[in-house]
Design a protein around this nucleic acid. Sequence first.
DNA 1: GACTGGCACTCGCCGATTCAGAGTGCCAAG
DNA 2: CTTGGCACTCTGAATCGGCGAGTGCCAGTC
Lengths: 340, 340
Amino acid sequence: MSLDDRKLDVLRAIVEDYVATQEPVGSKSLVERHHLGVSPATVRNDMAVLEEEGYIRQPHTSAGRVPTDAGYRLFVDRLSRVKALSPAERRAIERFLVGAVDLDDVVHRTVRLLAQLTRQVAVVQYPSLARSSVRHLELVPISTTRVMLVMIADTGRVEQRLVELPGPVAADAVTEMRSTVNDKLGGQRLADTPPLVQALVDDTPVDRRPTMACLASVLLETLVERSDERVALAGTANLARGGMLDFQGTLRPVLEALEEEVILLKLIGEVEPSTTRVRIGDENEIDNLRSASVVSTGYGPGTTIVGGLGVLGPTRMDYPGTIATVRAVARYVGDLLAQN
Amino acid sequence: MSLDDRKLDVLRAIVEDYVATQEPVGSKSLVERHHLGVSPATVRNDMAVLEEEGYIRQPHTSAGRVPTDAGYRLFVDRLSRVKALSPAERRAIERFLVGAVDLDDVVHRTVRLLAQLTRQVAVVQYPSLARSSVRHLELVPISTTRVMLVMIADTGRVEQRLVELPGPVAADAVTEMRSTVNDKLGGQRLADTPPLVQALVDDTPVDRRPTMACLASVLLETLVERSDERVALAGTANLARGGMLDFQGTLRPVLEALEEEVILLKLIGEVEPSTTRVRIGDENEIDNLRSASVVSTGYGPGTTIVGGLGVLGPTRMDYPGTIATVRAVARYVGDLLAQN
DNA sequence: GACTGGCACTCGCCGATTCAGAGTGCCAAG
DNA sequence: CTTGGCACTCTGAATCGGCGAGTGCCAGTC
C-alpha cells in the first residue's frame, strides 16, 4: 500500500511539530497548527495507517504520535524542504571564520561555529593526510643521534615526530638527506609514498643506509600506518539541553562514544563526493549512538574532499536546518582552504 | 570551641561513608561500620556540634548528615591519610605511558590514563611555552611570499604558523635569516625572547628589515601574546556516572565550563612548586563549577614545572585516592619528560 | 563532666488512590 | 472517503497515610 500525498503531509506535520515541541502530537493539535483541510478524524485514520507502516508510534496508548527512525528517514528523503540559511547565519559564519591564522585555528573555529549554529555536538576532521600531498619535509637535528622530522602537507597540516637514529650523524649529512628526501617525496600524494620511500632507502649509499632506513620507517609509520587522522569536537554541552529526555535519561553512552577518536572518524569520515549523509538512530553502527542522528559531509578546496565534518544530536532534530548549516559551513571552510 | 579528636574522627567517618555510599549517613550506621568505641547518642552529640560549626549538614530534617564544602576541606587538610597506590595502579601507569612516541602522544595517553584511574574528568596542560626554551626555529619557504615558521621547544612542543611576507624573498635569504634567528633565540627561555626579537629586527640590514619585522611580529604574537597554552581533556563520560545526583541534576553548566580552554587552564594552571592543590565546591572561582572539586598539580622534568594536570569531579569524591593518583601520574610524566 | 539508653517527634519516601485531560479507535451517517 | 460523536484507555499530577530512619533531649550512670 502506498501512502498518498495527504498521509505524507500528515507525517511531515508530525515530524515538524514533534521536533519543535518535544511532545507527542495528537490529531487535534495537528489540524489546528497546520491547515490541512480535513478533520481530526481523518487525520486519525491516516495516522493509523502511518503507524501500521512503521513511520510513527505511540509512546503509550492514548498519547500522541511520535516519529520512528523510519519516519524521520522518510521525512529526510522525501518530505523536507531545503531550508535557506538566514542572513544572520551567513554573517555569523563569515565573521567566525575570517582571521583564522592557522590550520588548527581554522578547525577549532569551524567546530565551535558548527556547534553554536546547530546547537548540537560538532565534529570536524582535520584534512586527511591520506588525501594530502607533501609540501615539504624538514629534518631538524636535535642532538647527534636525534632528529625531528617535520612534514608539512599542502592542506596545511604539520606533523612532527622525533626520530631516534641508530648512530651519530653529522649536520651536513642531515642537510643532504633533507634535500634528497624532499626531491623524491615533495609534491607527492601521501597515499602514493610508500613505494617511493622504499626506493629512497634502496638508493641511499650503503654507509648511510641504516640512518635512512630508520627515517623511512618512522615516515611510513607516522604518515601511513598510524593513519593519523585527527578530529576536533565541540558542543558536548548541547547534549544536556532539553533535560536529557532524548538519550533515554543518560548521556553516559553518548559521551563515551564521543571520547573515542576512532568512532568520531567513523561518524564523519567515509566521505563520498559532495553528498550530505544523514544517519538516523538505528542506522548508526555504533551501539551507543542508537538514539542519536548524525549529519555529515565532506569538505575541501574546490570539489576535492580532504576531510569530513558533521554534527550529532538526538534523532529528534531539525534535519532541514541542520543539513543546510552543515553544508554551508563545509562550503565556507572549503573556500577558506582553497585560498591557501 | 575546638573540636576534640573524637569529633574529628566522626567527621572523617562521615566523609568516608558518604563518599562510599552516596547516602546521608546516620549516627547508628556510623558506629556500626567504624568501631568508634562510643554509642550512637554520643555520636549524635558530636554531630550536632559539627553541624553547628558548619562542617556537616542535614539535607532534610531527620535524614543523616552530609559533609559541607568546609567539611571536605577540613578532611582534606587534616584528616585524610595518604593512600598508597596499589601495585596494579602503578603497573597501569607504566604500561600506559611507555611507548609514547610524541609529545602529543604523551599528553593524550596521560589524560586518558588519569581519567581512567580516577574515574573522573581529567585535564592535562601541554608544557607551557612560557616555561620552555627555544630549541630550534625553522623557516620553510612555501612560496616566494610565504614562509612556514616552525618552533621546536625543549619540552617537545612544536608550534607552527604561516607567515605572509610583505614581498618576495629569495631562498638563500630565508636560509640566512634562519641561522641568524637561531643564533639569537636558540636556547633562550621563551619568556625572555621579546626584547631579543626586537633587537633582532634592529640588527637586520635595512633591505631585509620589513621581512624580518613581519617575521618578528608573528613570532611574538604566536609565542607570547597569544599565550598559546593548550590542554587535553578526557573522561567527560565519567560525569554521567552516579546518575547525576551530584551536579544537581544537570551536567550542562559543567560541560559548558569544560569547553572553554581558558577555564580549563585556570583550573589546572597557576601551579606552585610541587604542591597538590585541591579546590572544593565553592572555592572554585568558576560559577558553573561550584558543585565540583578540582585536584591539580604541576609536572615537569625533575623539580621544574612546565605544566599542570588534574582532575575534576563531584565534591563527593575520594580525595585521598584522587590526590595520590594525580601526584603519581604527574611524577611519572615528569620522569618521562626528563628522558627527552 | 562525659557518656549512655530511652523516648517522643519530625519528616521524607513510597505505594495506593483518585481525578482530569488528552487522545484514541470505532461506528454510523453524510 | 470523510466526518462528527462517543466510549474507552491511559498517563501524569495531586492527594493521602503509613513506615522508618534519624534526630534532639532528658534523666540516669560511671
